[in-house]
Design a protein around this nucleic acid. Structure first.
Length: 752
DNA sequence: CATCTCGCGCTATAGACAGCATGTC
DNA sequence: CTATAGCGCGAGATG
């Protein structure tokens, strides 16, 4: 189909596509148009990655905007929200406005309502529904990206319920669901009353195969020997061959440690293929990586990057990840060893993909479990860069002939699994039942059940009554905790229930927090950190060997501080969980006591990404706790507030005031304080030479900070740093020496 | 002497959304 | 109280 033949879209669209070099639609895109996706028809598109899903969504959204409506694009990850926003910005020259809304980035409320296209995460959309955002009522088109994630036990139900709510709010809503190729796309389409495009078509060829011995065995029957090098590991041999052919390699492994080790080892392969110019540019990328954080992870990553390889996992800070992704896309980094983060994240195609580990530790089965076909195919799907590579190749590795056969059976020939709703589980229903009642979608048990009947779960289940049974348990729980009131069949959210729903807390988290705060008179920061770490909304650190003893001791030492009773040591599971929470809480306490990020990373065996993630979650939960304490008149609100602000800035109590000044983070605040400048008011009055010295003679920085503190005359012209006030090497209580770099002053946490 | 290879025992285990009110280099 | 593979270590072999 020619772009000129697409009906329903604004008249500038064909010309715009031609400018991008698009004359003809890909077959699945053409099929989508034939099914009326630009005429407001709902559609499920189950097609491989990189086969033009985004264009289908764009056409649908543009057509709905042309008809005078508004479009919402739902993504599973914050990183994808900004990626999509950037893509959609191309429409701004035609007068469309595009807005993003995620937890950490919110376009202003009114402005969002004026947008034609809005990109948001599923949780954010859920939250907007709960808070009654008015513009949701005049939505014409909703796009759900990666809709196969409804299969995810943790986050799938949110997407499922949110789609059901949006469709209920607006019965004429066009629903466009984009999915990887899955086993039961038809079922999804049926659920959404949508047409279906189900295709394996790809714009560039994908060859899949298994490496065994010294050879690659492909799905088309081809076999190719790899050039023999004495006992080189298979991954290295494959990477070398790809490199000789001018391509890049993406290696998927099953643990962070493996990712880091593989990157380090394989860097010795990539380093030989770099041109001097590339070396220079990689040097610059490595420098940026070191800027991000002072940790060993950061340094290891930079060292690998200098040699043309990188690792990628959730322990890396967000900036680490985006630096690696973009350098890989620019073909500067030749190889990335990644955990599954990368398969589901932003677009990072590669000539070759190697799925090195096809089993992964899974606590719920108590051992290693094979990856699903869907996951492996998603990883495979990263092979082949449109417009750059003639084809993509995706490989698994086998150690024996039997394994070779097994891998062909299990992954190469196999069709992906069917996607199954995970809604009928208590944790998922706990939060969604409360929200459904609180935001007016159901006012009785019966109405609730009939609402739930519109979910995917209801269309899939053979087991009648299960959903009802779980829902009843959940209702009983919510009533017992005074989030809901029941009167015969009628259900009503209490005022507390409304608050919990709007705060987006798991009701169980709210109950735990309320319970902990009720018994507290003068809680310590540690007590509060531990409290929020115990909630199901916090993802705790693992206990490693030796940790059990260490944290058991700590538990007794600081017993008086914990809110609520400590479980007995003999209650295996509960005690372990409680200790994990303690470990996480102590990490937060370290952070809020100005311990260096480097030291924290080392002490807890985590990466900078973990530290920031935990801090972020703690900040959120403490904010919610503060609200709850205020609402219930508990008098602990000020203590919660202080604990929250300390964790937010990573400072001790005495620096809170200083850290609130823009440009002043934990390190600068401490240096200023040491120099005798203790408050914002001091900053306005203090001797400039002292301020300058405390800021290590950085004039520009000092001027900006003084200006932000509200000083009348921030100029540093002619000021000389006071040597008396210069910071000593080690000023951080509880920490090691300060950083070595000249301008490392900020452990920037706000950039998330 | 430096580097590689083999085998054994030990060890550690993926991911990441949300409130609210403003502002990091 | 589950499973696995990768790593580090030491010993022996090779260039």
């Amino acid at each position: 189909m020619n772009v000129a033949d697409v009906s329903g879209v604004p008249e500038w669209v064909p010309g715009h596509l031609r400018d991008d070099g698009i004359e003809e639609l890909y077959p699945p895109q053409a099929e989508a148009v034939e099914r009326g996706v630009t005429e407001g028809e709902s559609l499920v598109a189950s097609i491989p990655t990189a086969s033009g899903k985004t264009l289908i969504a764009e056409l649908a959204m543009l057509a709905s905007v042309e008809r005078g409506g508004r479009a919402l694009y739902i993504v599973p990850l914050r990183a994808l929200a900004s990626e999509k926003k950037r893509e959609f910005d191309q429409f701004e020259e035609y007068g469309l406005s595009v807005g993003v809304s995620t937890g950490n980035y919110e376009s202003d409320g009114d402005w969002l309502a004026a947008c034609d296209i809005i990109v948001a995460t599923s949780e954010k959309v859920d939250s907007l529904v709960r808070n009654g955002a008015g513009w949701l009522d005049d939505l014409a088109c909703v796009v759900a990206d990666e809709v196969h994630l409804v299969d995810d036990a943790h986050r799938g139900p949110t997407l499922e319920v949110t789609l059901a709510k949006l469709r209920r709010l607006n019965p004429d809503l066009q629903t466009v669901a984009l999915s990887a190729t899955i086993g039961n796309a038809g079922e999804i389409a049926e659920w959404l009353d949508a047409g279906l495009v189900d295709s394996d078509w790809r714009p560039i060829d994908l060859r899949t195969g298994v490496h065994y011995g010294q050879a690659l065995h492909f799905d088309d029957g081809d076999t190719r020997e790899l050039p023999v090098r004495s006992s080189e590991r298979p991954t290295a041999a494959i990477a070398r061959e790809t490199l000789d052919d001018g391509g890049s390699t993406l290696v998927f492994v099953n643990s962070r440690r493996n990712a880091e080790a593989a990157a380090k080892r394989l860097a010795s392969v990539t380093v030989g293929a770099l041109t001097p110019e590339e070396e220079e540019r990689l040097e610059a990328v490595a420098a940026e990586i070191r800027e991000v954080s002072d940790t060993e992870t950061s340094d290891d990553l930079a060292r690998a990057v200098e040699r043309g390889a990188a690792f990628h996992h959730a322990g890396c800070a967000g900036e680490h990840r985006s630096l690696v992704e973009s350098a890989f896309r620019d073909r500067l980094i030749k190889l990335v060893a990644a955990t599954p983060t990368l398969a589901a994240g932003v677009n990072t195609p590669s000539r070759r993909v190697v799925v090195r580990d096809w089993r992964r530790y899974d606590g719920s089965v108590g051992g290693m479990a094979p990856l699903s076909v869907l996951e492996v195919h998603q990883m495979f799907g990263r092979a082949g860069r449109p417009g750059l590579d003639p084809y993509g190749e995706a490989l698994l590795l086998a150690n024996s002939h039997d394994e070779l056969d097994e891998l062909f059976e299990r992954y190469i020939w196999a069709d992906p699994e069917a996607v199954r709703s995970k809604l009928a589980a208590e944790p998922a229903l706990r939060t969604h039942v409360l929200a459904t009642v609180a935001s007016g979608f159901a006012d009785s048990r019966e109405a609730l059940l009939s609402f739930l009947d519109r979910t995917l779960y209801a269309t899939q289940t053979a087991e009648q009554g299960r959903l009802e049974r779980v829902a009843d348990n959940v209702i009983a729980y919510l009533v017992a905790n005074e989030f809901l009131e029941r009167d015969g069949d009628a259900l009503r959210a209490t005022s507390l229930g409304h608050t919990v729903s709007r705060l987006y807390l798991d009701p169980m988290s709210a109950a735990e927090i309320i319970d902990g705060l009720r018994g507290a008179t003068d809680p310590t920061a540690m007590g509060l950190y531990h409290l929020v770490c115990r909630t199901p909304d916090m993802y705790d650190l693992y206990l490693r060997s030796g940790d059990r003893e260490e944290y058991t001791m700590l538990a007794y030492e600081r017993e008086a501080e914990f809110l609520g009773a400590m479980p007995s040591e003999f209650e295996e599971g509960r005690f372990e969980d409680w200790l994990s929470a303690l470990k996480t809480a102590r990490m937060l306490e370290d952070w809020a006591s100005e311990v260096d990020e480097e030291r924290i990373a080392e002490r807890y065996g985590v990466g900078p990404g973990d530290v920031r993630g935990k801090v972020d979650t703690a900040e959120w939960l403490l904010g919610a706790a503060e609200r709850l304490a205020g609402e219930l008149d508990m008098g602990t609100a000020p203590a919660v507030h202080e604990a929250r602000v300390r964790v937010q800035h990573g400072v001790r109590e005495e620096l809170i005031d200083l850290a609130r000044v823009r440009g002043v983070g934990r390190k600068r605040a401490r240096r200023l304080h040491d120099a005798g400048v203790e408050t914002r008011a001091d900053l306005r009055e203090a001797d400039k030479s002292v301020v300058l010295a405390a800021l290590r003679g950085r004039r520009r920085t000092a001027e900006t900070i003084l200006e932000n503190a509200g000083r009348e005359d921030p100029s540093m012209d002619g000021v000389v740093a006071d040597p008396e006030a210069a910071p000593a090497a080690s000023t951080t209580p509880g920490g090691t020496e300060g950083g070595e770099r000249a301008d490392d002053d900020q452990a920037s946490l706000g950039d998330f």
